[in-house]
Design a protein around this nucleic acid. Sequence first.
DNA 1: ATAGGGTTAG
Length: 744
Amino acid sequence: MATACTLVVSFPRHKKHPSNPDPISVTVNNERFFANHPLLQLLDQCSKTTHLKQIHARMLRIGLFSDPFSASKLIQASALSELSSLHYAHKVFDQISQPNLYSWNALIRSYASSKEPIKSLLMFLQMLYQSDELPNKFTYPFVIKASAELLALRVGEGLHGMVLKSEVGSDLFVLNSLIHFYAQCGCLDLAHRVFLSMPKRDVVSWNSMIVGFAQGGYADQALELFHGMEEENLRPNDVTMIGVLSACGMKMDLQFGRWVHSYIKRKGIKGNLILNNAILDMYVKCGSVADAKRFFDKMEDKDVVSWTTMLVGYARMGDFNAARTLFGEMPYQDIAAWNALISAYEQNGNPKEALATFNELQLSKEVKPDSVTLVSALSACAQLGAMDLGGWIHVYIEKQGIKFTCHLTTALIDMYSKCGDLQKALEVFNSVESKDVFVWSSMIAGLGMHGRGRDAINLFLKMQETKVKPNAVTLTNLLSACSHSGLVDDGRKFFNQMEPVFGIVPGVKQYACLVDILGRAGHLDEAVDLVENMPIPPGASVWGALLGACRLHGNLDLAERACDQLLELEPQNHGAYVLLSNIYAKSGKWDKVSELRKLMRNSGLKKEPGSSSVEVNGIVHEFLIGDNSHPLSKKIYLKLDEMIARLRSSGYVPNKSQLLQLIEEEEEQDQALYLHSEKLALAFGLISKSPSQPIRIVKNLRICDDCHTVAKKISKLYNREILLRDRYRFHHFKAGECSCMDFW
DNA sequence: ATAGGGTTAG
């Protein structure tokens, strides 16, 4: 303790105008302290930055700014007010010769919840190294929050260490912020460990943990914790319930959701807009638009989130009209509302409408597309094979200087791959610096679907040199790449490595891939053995893969067995009927084929109509079987006749094994084949695209044997490159050959 | 002498 203490008290010498009083100060050991000056009280009432600046000026004039306490008040006001002129606050801060801990904390806090949380950490470091101040119990929650925003696991762990060594190691606020931090970084086990280690927990501790579990996708754990909270007689609040509702939505458990809703009412938990929106969202996620609508109509306050949530509800039910209407009724449409509509179309099998809406958005000029919009639009392009538009979006992203987030990169790679331009996909992949597991996985998928299995494997190996860990999707894509290229040994090897090397338990999807790999290569016994000894029940995809193998290798008994199993799991799977009937047709069992058709008709199943699309000058033209709705239909059929004639003279004989029904007349059989949508698309491509451009066709189903042969021959006879994407993969037709090596 | 943590749609 200082023993020699000089104390000087100075009073104002004379009364001045009351709004401009002289400061009252106390000097201790040559350091001057000012009493709470009336000017400082004005700071709280500032409503404009100009007010702030005026007070700042006055403070400088009367020397109040040199008082650290007063300066810290100014920092606080400029950094944390609604106006939040953080930049200004920082400049003011830099003028303070010896900022006190309070000023540091105010700025660190403000940066933590700003758009640049990294600056919070930089300020923190600056404080550690360039000042004498040490962090206190207020500092830690801010910097930990900044680390959470940045998902900076290492930084947060370091802070955790500092906390443990300091005196604030058991501060409730600090520990709560650590729970939130670990949960945000996806380390729920670490978050939970902090939670359990706490000597005391308050409602925020529970909320952080519950919300953490809910957002991390662990609905059960979140709900379990909610019950645990009840057992401890701790009163849940609105934030708790928001977390619980989010978990309900994930579980899609309407019963329980309704119970939670009534619980909120029963316990008198004070409602607010966010909570109400969460209730609405829960009903939508649980699939009850009726409950959602009832609640929505009763809501007094509604914001864009409420409207958008309701819109999504309609869209999920496939009620696009209601969604559209609601969109029009909203007080205003922000970009999120547009995004909801666009992605609703895109994710519910209506990519064309998604692009039409995207177009509408651009014409409206009210709001600008953001990266979410572009991801949805790119995905719609990918589905349609609309590469002109996809490429345009790519340019748009570059021109607008929009950041290539991993999400966007993934969407671009996927779009280019699925539109058939693998080279462009690789260019995008190679040009970006940040690659997360999805970026890598999409590139592996791209190589795989184009039959470049060896390259896909090499990329996977390269991925392992980075810190990015493969996930289940990566492995599925890798295995499917092996399957498309017939790489049996590699496929088997990677499958066996899954659990021991990559720590991923093989799921139904990966089993299906391996069955496909083995089956395609003709190892039917091994495939059957695998299916029979699976530790998990074989899903429809596994039986489907086996059935596909039977189609290739013509094993009737096994095909019937697989088909039975498949239909038991998915009675509506028309693909199963089609595959089996292909197998019957191949072995000439036309009676069985018609029997199957009868069965299909009786169970109200229709074969999904085949359709093929070609993009010309940014417009996607779609063709159905025997389609003559196209304006150039006459020309297309003339071209088709010419194609067939040229093919015939070069020795082509139609392959009818994949007709779905027995057509008696030979000529009619041929006609049915000629009318296949991919042939119409091909004819249209030939007349409307210049010879230097490849013809890109997207087919919704698998390409049939005959169309495959025709495309090969056409590529040679007309010297054209043809890129056809079917349901499973790409076929590059060039000079009479196909990249799939006739193996698909 | 001043202060802090957890929250919904896409």
